[in-house]
Design a binder for these strands. Structure first.
Lengths: 345, 345
DNA sequence: AGTGGCGATGTTAACGCTAACAACCGTGTG
DNA sequence: CACACGGTTGTTAGCGTTAACATCGCCACT
């Protein structure tokens, strides 16, 4: 039998020996250093191939102090929004030559977020993206480990962290304005959970649009993003169908529940009531009726946040916190229509 | 001013100096070695706290040859199924003290999967979970880097890799049997993409259940998981409503499209046609009508796959490939009902 | 012919940690 | 009182890589 089969994986020194060069030359070939003779490079590459050598990026990270890995802290990555955001981040990171380590949290409290960031820092990530749609998560960014580059996504501009977010208020304004433009006197609202910044932004945009038009502002109904809560809100609104002609629901899942409640109560959409959602989940176009909603560009959010993070990492300093905003856009479908005319005009 | 602020992060030696012990003692405290005097431990912990020291797990990984990180290769992590699976895996991994690095692929070909696994191996993960619902991904597992522990999820039992999967055929059988039990003569099927193993399993289960009952087996309609394709299938089936009384759709999103097509065509569900989906996405209970579907336990899949992987890692040897199967279960809602009686019984 | 310069390669010393072994100390025993 | 022993701590040597510097030819120029 040949040499023991159960040996270590080959290391640079093994390649060097086989190629008849020093391990540093192997390193140079791997790092595409320009000052290596073509013939030497070929010999090294052949040796690498023969041994099936793979470099150990852990050792490299130790000496270069760069792991080429980024951490992502998120919350409930099954929800369409966070899942899409994380996906966008991961794609952008990989395009830039970085890996991504993920921590999804079940509970979002300041301590939990801090702990997650701490773990990632120990693991040696070069920076972190915190998808922080909740107030508590945004606050946690105030006490980051010193010197760790970080970017918040969907967060609030607190502390010295750069933030990338979709302009929730703008989306809500578009949704509300769209409904007012169709002749509705006012627009009702089913909101998201109070501790979510996105819920707050959407509520604000809705409120602002109504104010700007000088319309009455109905009290918002509470919701928690789930279809169930939208259903409950729908039951309530269906009972007041005389006065309700348009509803802006803070996300598509709740809009689904609301449509269901309306359908059960015999309320016709859009003939009696118009409905707008938010998110444009893949199912939205196939709701009955197809849902008018607001689409967010998660890919862009991912690209921008990674761009900002890499700028911090590469400049090796806290280079002024920025705030980048991505505009959402309304996608009009069949759940919105002209208001029933109460009085002849 | 005190000592230069722009110094390195503190390392073990700094802690040791401040605590008046050797760095090895610091290491022992951190690793909860039993042979450390209580008072020494306290002094070290105090020093750690004062300096804000965090250990460098990269250095630790280099010497222990254990990164406590696992790689996950997946595909389109926005889809409910993969997203849930990845989430389940991540939770189980963290519960076991492991971190997770994710690579979501856009295209699933053998080369792409291999490359992803290779990158993760270089990064020093202790093992990989490959969420391989497509034939091509499952095949890629045949040529894994030697010595890298791996587990496939939703894959096929090829090569020497352990596999954890939901019993798709069983779920489809339950769905089909449920419909037959309601008096339907036969059950139509809208399938998933041909290259997905899950689509294949669901089709097989449907086929087997019909065969076992000695029923006619209609030709399956093609689909690609999207609501759009379900809608198209729904249009076709609505045109044949005389003969179609029950449909098993391979996932919930397509079922949504199908319900929409039925609704547009005036086909009543479940009065005229019963519909069953697969996945139990959070929206399913709020479709109109609420969708009868098949629920998969992704948490269990995550736990089992991590369990299998850690067994391989800790035994440090390829300990016989296993095949674990998780049973899905039917969730009956309002989209299924008794068959219209053609002839008096 | 001597010297400067540059391209290609080798040598040495980290990076921050753990494993292995050595050393020390107080105590109980022959 | 010498000695063994076990609990506690220190010392040394890597893990596999890159950075920094040293070396060695070779050619061009004065």
């Amino acid at each position: 039998m040949g040499p023991s089969v159960e040996r270590h994986l080959p290391v640079m020194a093994d390649v060097a020996r086989l190629a008849g060069v020093s391990h540093q030359t192997v390193s140079r070939v791997l790092n595409e250093h320009p000052r290596v003779r073509e013939e030497t490079r070929a010999r090294v590459l052949r040796a690498i191939d023969m041994l099936g050598y793979r470099r150990n990026l852990t050792a490299r990270a130790l000496v270069t102090r760069r792991s080429h890995r980024l951490g992502v802290v998120s919350f409930d990555t099954i929800l369409y929004g966070p899942a899409s955001t994380v996906y966008g981040i991961e794609r952008a990171a990989r395009a830039a030559g970085y890996f991504v380590s993920i921590m999804s949290l079940r509970t979002i409290d300041r301590a939990g977020v801090n702990e997650a960031i701490g773990h990632l820092a120990e693991q040696g990530v070069d920076g972190v993206v915190v998808v922080a749609p909740q107030r508590a998560a945004a606050q946690a960014l105030a006490d980051l480990p010193a010197g760790l580059p970080a970017v918040a996504v969907e967060g609030r501009h607190e502390g010295d962290v750069s933030v990338v977010s979709v302009d929730q208020a703008e989306g809500a304004r578009q949704a509300t304005a769209h409904l007012l433009g169709l002749g509705h006197r006012t627009v009702w609202h089913v909101g998201g959970p109070d501790d979510w910044l996105e819920a707050e932004g959407r509520r604000e945009g809705w409120h602002a649009a109504l104010s700007a038009a000088g319309r009455a502002i109905p009290e918002a109904l509470p919701g928690d993003w789930t279809p169930r809560s939208g259903y409950a809100a729908g039951k309530v609104l269906a009972g007041r169908v005389a006065e309700v002609t348009a509803v802006f629901v803070a996300n598509d899942q709740m809009a689904l529940g609301l449509l269901r409640a309306f359908s059960e109560a015999g309320v016709q959409v859009p003939e009696q009531v118009s409905v707008v959602g938010f998110d444009d989940i893949p199912e939205a176009a196939y709701f009955t009726p197809a849902l008018t909603t607001v689409r967010q560009d998660f890919g862009e959010v991912g690209r921008l946040s990674i761009g900002l993070l890499l700028k911090q990492i590469e400049s090796a300093g806290p280079c002024g916190h920025e705030r980048l905003v991505v505009a959402p856009r309304l996608v009009a479908r069949d759940s919105t229509g002209r208001a029933r005319t109460r009085a002849p005009h």
